[in-house]
Amino acid sequence: KYSDMIVAAIQAEKNRAGSSRQSIQKYIKSHYKVGENADSQIKLSIKRLVTTGVLKQTKGVGASGSFRLA
């Protein structure tokens, strides 16, 4: 599940300011076997996790910027 992968990526990075979408994508692609549409799936999952309150956006708008666990 992409949401689990995103949470794992943010936990692994341990950046106080949060993790960027690009760094999350890079982590997921190197640690998991994902399909061609992974980028758009990650983007959608990040937006969903922010609206449900699992992630907090520290910089930027939408799916860009930095995110950390709430």
Rank of each mutant, 00 (worst) to 15 (best):
K14S: 11
K43D: 15
R16M: 10
I6W: 02
E13L: 15
D39V: 08
Q41C: 15
G65L: 14
R68E: 08
R21C: 15
I10G: 00
S40E: 14
I24N: 01
L69N: 05
G62I: 05
A8Q: 07
H31T: 05
Q25R: 07
R16P: 15
A63E: 11
I10Q: 01
A70C: 09
I24L: 02
K47Y: 11
S45W: 15
V50K: 00
T52H: 07
V54L: 05
Y2T: 02
S3V: 12
A70N: 08
A12G: 04
R48A: 10
V50S: 02
K14I: 04
K43R: 12
I6Q: 00
G35R: 04
Q22Y: 10
M5F: 05
A70D: 04
S30E: 12
R16T: 10
K1R: 12
L49Q: 01
Y27D: 01
D39G: 05
V50I: 08
L49P: 00
Q11N: 09
R21G: 09
I10Y: 00
Q25V: 15
Q57Y: 15
A70Y: 10
K43W: 15
G65T: 14
F67H: 03
S66F: 14
R21N: 07
I10L: 08
K29G: 03
T52C: 15
S23M: 07
V54C: 07
S23E: 09
E13W: 05
L55G: 00
V50R: 01
A17T: 09
Q41R: 12
S64C: 14
N15P: 02
R21E: 15
A17H: 13
Q11A: 11
L49N: 00
I6Y: 00
K1I: 10
S40C: 11
K1A: 10
K47I: 13
I24G: 01
K43A: 15
D4F: 14
K33L: 09
I28E: 15
L69Q: 04
Q41T: 05
S40P: 05
H31E: 02
I10V: 12
E13S: 12
Q22M: 09
K56P: 00
K47S: 09
E36M: 09
S40A: 13
Y2L: 09
Q41L: 14
G60A: 07
K33M: 11
D39F: 06
G65N: 12
R48F: 14
I46M: 04
I24W: 02
I10N: 01
G65Y: 15
K56R: 11
Q41K: 15
K59Q: 08
A63T: 11
Y32V: 00
E36T: 10
R48M: 13
A38C: 12
K26H: 09
I28W: 15
I42M: 02
Y2W: 15
K14Y: 08
E36L: 11
A9R: 03
S64P: 09
T52P: 00
R48C: 15
Q11M: 14
M5G: 01
L44V: 07
A17W: 14
I42L: 04
Q22N: 09
A38L: 11
K29H: 08
T52S: 12
S45L: 09
R68N: 06
K1G: 07
G53D: 01
L44W: 08
Y27L: 01
K29V: 07
G18K: 02
D39N: 09
K1E: 09
V34M: 05
V61W: 11
R16E: 12
G53A: 03
K26L: 12
E13G: 11
A12L: 03
K29E: 07
G62M: 05
A9M: 03
N37C: 08
V61D: 12
Q11Y: 08
Q25M: 15
A8S: 06
F67W: 06
L49S: 00
K56C: 15
S64I: 09
T51S: 11
N15E: 05
T51H: 12
Q57S: 07
K59M: 09
G60K: 07
N15C: 13
T51A: 14
R48P: 00
Y32E: 00
F67Y: 14
I28S: 02
Q22A: 12
K29T: 07
S30D: 11
Y32M: 04
Q25F: 11
L44T: 08
N15L: 05
K47A: 12
K26R: 12
G35N: 06
L69M: 08
N37Y: 06
K26E: 13
L44N: 09
N37P: 02
A17Y: 14
G65C: 15
S66Q: 11
A70M: 08
D39R: 05
I28C: 04
T58Y: 10
G18P: 03
S45V: 14
G35E: 06
S3G: 09
A70Q: 06
V34G: 02
T51I: 14
S40F: 13
A8W: 06
Y2M: 10
S64R: 11
I6F: 00
N37S: 07
T52V: 09
S66H: 13
K59D: 07
G35P: 09
L44E: 12
E36F: 09
I28F: 01
K1L: 14
K29C: 06
D4C: 15
F67V: 05
R48Q: 10
V34T: 05
S30V: 08
N15I: 04
I28V: 15
V7E: 01
I10M: 05
Q25K: 07
I46H: 00
F67S: 02
I28M: 03
G53V: 03
S20R: 03
I10F: 00
V7T: 04
T58P: 04
T52E: 12
R16Y: 09
E36Q: 12
Q41G: 05
E36N: 13
G65W: 15
G18T: 03
E36P: 14
Q25G: 08
L55V: 05
V50Q: 03
K14L: 06
V54K: 05
S19Q: 03
I10D: 00
S3D: 15
T51N: 12
V54E: 03
K1H: 11
R48N: 10
A70H: 06
K56I: 15
G53R: 03
S66T: 13
N37Q: 06
A70F: 07
K33S: 10
S3E: 15
I6P: 00
S40T: 12
R68W: 11
D4L: 11
A17E: 10
L55K: 01
L55A: 01
M5H: 01
S19C: 14
A63K: 12
S64H: 13
S19W: 04
D4S: 09
G18Q: 03
A9E: 00
Q57D: 03
L49H: 00
E36H: 11
A8K: 06
K43F: 14
I24P: 00
S19L: 11
V54D: 15
K26W: 15
G18S: 04
Y27F: 08
V54M: 05
S30K: 09
R68T: 13
A12Q: 05
A12D: 05
S3H: 10
K43L: 15
Y2C: 15
V61L: 09
K56G: 03
K43Q: 12
N15K: 10
A9D: 02
K33P: 10
N37T: 06
Y2V: 05
D39C: 14
A12V: 04
T51K: 14
E13R: 07
E13K: 07
S45H: 14
G62Y: 06
L49T: 00
K14D: 10
Q41A: 11
L49W: 01
K26Q: 12
G60C: 10
A63V: 11
V61E: 11
I42D: 00
A70I: 08
G35C: 15
R21T: 15
Q22C: 15
L44K: 14
K59H: 09
